[in-house]
Nucleic acid binder design. Structure first.
Lengths: 334, 334
DNA sequence: CCCGCAATTGTTAACGTTCACAACTATTTG
DNA sequence: CAAATAGTTGTGAACGTTAACAATTGCGGG
């Protein structure tokens, strides 16, 4: 117990003058049936534990038990409301079930999971729309619990929550094109992947309504909120201003509202704005943001993982569709 | 290697027909001096590794080596720009130095670190302003690398980055009170801690300028952005409207700008707004947000931890003051 | 008075790695 | 030609914990 060393179960055992096993039993509380520890002994052990400030080493425990009690949450970027909401939900719920949530950014989850860092992982982020992923496949083979948010992947030893973006966006575009002819779009600069398909839905919606795609009405934002704001300013100062703007992410939509106010335009009277994602941020805005998205699904995703961890889910995996719909709110009233 | 089992170093050894040690040496690359592995053997091992998709188990490795190569980043809430920026900086920098960053929310870091989950931790969050913390002290005794962001704690086996909020806020209040008499405040609802001291600085600044504290000009926001927005609307619709508003967090300040625009007020002509934190969000705004805060320090914090991990820092720990100053930008021009 | 059972606690091997050291094979040198 | 040496690879213990199983004690009944 000198400086720089952490107390082990061995130290506790010596302090309480019992064997390692006894300490282990007392702490894990699994001295139920045939193995009982007498009250005096328990007290002595607990006293020693407190005295030394002993906490079992998770790595060692995990190794022996074959499980880590850790769940990873893989997200892309803390600036995205969607990812944040997922991480927050996981951090709220998982501890209640004895799991330690850890949030991993970017691609860190691959190494982390492959090296046995956690019992399960919620993957909320794929830079590209893909139908399968080598790491996911391998982890599934190894029996790691996984829930993947993806519209394009099929369950195969893991679970998939599939947001039905296309139908939602189609509804949205239909709604917009019935009352607008000049519908602009602020899209993400992501190479391929989600945003692309969102933009594709925009284009498809225009075509369906017989409106030619006007390239000058399409702007690309480059991940930072300020660029979306700039794009919005440009669009709104166009000689023939669009009457509605579809932003492929709520965050960008909020920037657009701000740009409108800045220019003295009223929302929704002068310009109507629609986002994508149905984030709480948009709900809380004034006027509340009309948006295309799922009902909040993050709790659901976390529970899907918990079910899989407890073995409730069929081994081959399930696919839960998350319907996306248009939430008509303040920015498109009237 | 059947379904549900992960390949171990043993499997690789058998496949390559060598001993465990050889595999370990090849992989860890530490076959430098007296222990060399011949090229053919290396090739065979690497082939087997690839074939089996073997990745060393981090827990086992960590146990043996006495280090985990993991660094935890403890933050309070993903909704706070400050916390996000810290986590993002850590996630960017740490992997370049061989460390796996994991983000922990709320109080999770206590259990996690006490059970040996990581070699080091960056603590960016304390719900209360305290001069010492039992967990931190104990971790320091155990030789865990720690950097704590705190204005009130003193280094004692760990490092402290101390934001000089008071002097910064004092400057700010002086600046505001020279041209304004009615300065409102939107503060956080946190019980004690950071926000409290920020509010205290507001009160002190008023007193110094001989302006009585007007309770009707103080509003409390309850963590969600929408409440700050509401508070701002109320303040701005007061019969005798304040001419400046100090928000104890940039996020709230941005909401306040939005509220002003909503009411048709111009910023900074009609209302001047100051935030706290110097977040990038505020910088990107239009008009850019005047704010009290440090120059970006998150990279610095991460490097402080790396220094400590490599033993560069003196054992007793260092205290780095992070001067806070007023960044005069668009919302207070003119 | 001995046996068996219940109530407690201890022994030991194992989880997957790493590392100091031992051991083996060819070379080369005296 | 023996022995030292360099170049390779293997052995075994250890990290901290758990769990199947063994061992010890005390008690009552046959």
């Amino acid at each position: 117990m000198s400086k720089g060393s952490k107390p082990t179960i061995r130290d506790v055992a010596m302090a309480a003058d019992v064997s390692l096993t006894t300490v282990s039993y007392v702490l894990s509380g699994r001295h139920g049936g045939t193995t009982r520890i007498s009250q005096p002994t328990q007290d002595r052990v607990l006293a020693a534990v407190k005295e030394l400030g002993y906490v079992p080493n998770q790595a060692a425990r995990g190794m022996r038990r074959g499980k880590t009690d850790v769940v990873a949450v893989a997200i892309g970027n803390l600036d995205w409301p969607w990812d944040r909401a997922l991480a927050t939900a996981a951090a709220d719920i998982l501890p209640q079930h004895g799991y330690q949530p850890v949030i991993l950014l970017g691609d860190d989850w691959r190494k982390f999971m492959m090296s046995g860092g956690a019992d399960g992982v919620i993957i909320g982020y794929f830079p590209e729309a893909k139908s399968e992923d080598e790491t996911v496949t391998e982890l599934a083979r190894r029996g790691v619990a996984q829930v993947v948010i993806s519209g394009t992947m099929k369950p195969a030893g893991f679970d998939v929550l599939a947001p039905e973006t296309d139908s939602g966006l189609a509804d949205c575009m239909e709604f917009l094109t019935t009352s607008h002819r000049r519908v602009a779009c602020i899209r993400r600069a992501d190479p391929a992947g989600r945003p692309k398909s969102r933009f594709a839905a925009y284009a498809a919606g225009l075509e369906k309504a017989g409106i030619p795609l006007d390239a000058s009405l399409v702007r690309t934002s480059h991940h930072r909120p300020a660029t979306a704001y700039q794009s919005a300013l440009e669009l709104l100062q166009l000689p023939d201003r669009p009457t509605a703007i579809l932003c492929t992410d709520d965050m960008e939509a909020l920037q657009t509202i701000r740009a409108a106010y800045r220019l003295g335009l009223r929302v929704p009277e002068d310009i109507q704005i629609v986002g994508v994602g149905n984030s709480t941020e948009g709900q809380d805005y004034d006027p509340a943001l009309t948006t295309v998205g799922p009902d909040p699904i993050f709790e659901q995703v976390v529970r899907m993982l918990l079910d899989r961890l407890t073995g409730t889910t069929p081994a081959e995996g399930i696919r839960v569709a998350s319907p996306w719909k248009l939430h008509r709110r303040g920015t498109t009233e009237g």
